[in-house]
């Protein structure tokens, strides 16, 4: 008997991506003792959380959300985070590098050292403290070149270090989840999603996202070719700078002094999707930390950054 074996090639791409992510999440919950989800509050985290709520339905996702709070996140992000955790009855672990906070490590004075201390080190601290053996991250392979090479189940040694030249072969959808004590796996269920897919899925599923993604009039200052929004009074103006109110939105959300706004009129999901589809710069162009040198993300990732 002859028939078409796999209908996969004719299934809508968002359905295939959703099914893949759900499969990955279930695999983690079934095979690890102490998983967690790194929740960065951005659109990718919103999609990842939505998928987790679907994957385990009617059960709640059987793991906590972990937010590494650099203390420099947009206020709207923090409010959204707390509202979301409460809405779905999820455990939320918020971790800040207290030593860094005490030393007043900040993005204005400390540049990439700030990222290292308040993000990378803080994350490693949290992972070590709670002894998570698997951690979900919302990173996508289309974001950046070294991410394009990373496995979906990405092994980290006991120092949270990634060895890009010695990754485990990853075959079919059969993920090797075996680790020794102290080692861990970072799991990226959105590996095969693109920015377009994320937005189309948000629209299809009507997923709630931080309002900063929608265009609105906001106070911004032009600095180094980027528009930086004043989220609190810690942003001080340099000589010759002035705040302006502009119709802006954010394509990506991080720490407010490190995330640039774009001028946009897109104040609905439809308008955002149309804008993303016609965009001629990549999403991470708005991330100041990625532009140090060609391989900067690979370096950060090897050190333990997500």
């Amino acid at each position: 008997m002859t028939a078409v074996l796999k209908q996969d090639v004719s299934r809508p791409h968002l359905k295939r991506l959703e099914d893949e992510a759900i499969y990955i999440m279930r695999e983690v919950v079934a095979e690890f003792k102490n998983p967690a989800m790194l929740y960065s509050i951005g659109k990718d985290s919103s999609v990842m959380l939505h998928l987790a709520l679907k994957a385990f339905y009617p059960a709640r996702p059987p793991f906590p959300l972990v937010h590494v709070d650099t203390t420099w996140k947009f206020k709207e992000m923090i409010a959204f985070r707390d509202r979301t955790a409460a809405k779905y009855g999820l455990d939320l672990i918020v971790h800040t590098n207290e030593a860094g906070r005490a030393d007043h490590i900040n993005p204005f004075d400390h540049g990439s050292y700030y990222t290292h201390v308040m993000k990378t080190e803080a994350l490693k601290e949290a992972l070590s403290k709670y002894k998570f053996d698997a951690v979900f991250g919302g990173a996508r392979r289309d974001e950046e070149k070294s991410r394009a090479k990373e496995r979906i189940f990405s092994f980290r040694d006991e120092n949270h270090v990634w060895a890009p030249k010695n990754q485990r072969p990853e075959l079919w959808n059969i993920y090797n989840t075996r680790i020794k004590d102290g080692e861990s796996i970072r799991v990226f269920p959105l590996s095969n999603w693109t920015e377009q897919d994320i937005w189309q899925y948000i629209m299809q599923e009507n997923i709630e996202i931080v309002p900063l993604y929608y265009a609105a009039r906001r106070p911004v200052v032009a600095r180094g070719g980027m528009l930086i929004m004043a989220d609190d009074d810690r942003l001080t103006l340099k000589d010759g700078e002035a705040f302006e109110e502009k119709m802006v939105r954010f394509r990506t959300l991080g720490c407010y002094p490190l995330t640039a706004a774009i001028e946009s009129e897109a104040d609905t999901l439809e308008a955002i999707v149309a804008e993303v589809l016609s965009a001629n710069t990549s999403e991470r162009a708005g991330r100041l930390i990625d532009q140090d040198d060609a391989a900067s993300m690979e370096k950060k990732k090897r050190e333990g950054y997500f």
């Binding site: 392979r141 030249k165 391989a295």
Partner: peptide, 21 residues
């Protein structure tokens, strides 16, 4: 555009599978 790892750029070869979309 696609050779993403530092070692790959240095050696001008592809070491690991890269996914492109």
């Amino acid at each position: 555009l696609v050779d993403g790892l530092e070692a790959e750029r240095e050696q001008g070869i592809t070491i690991d599978v890269a996914y492109r979309f």
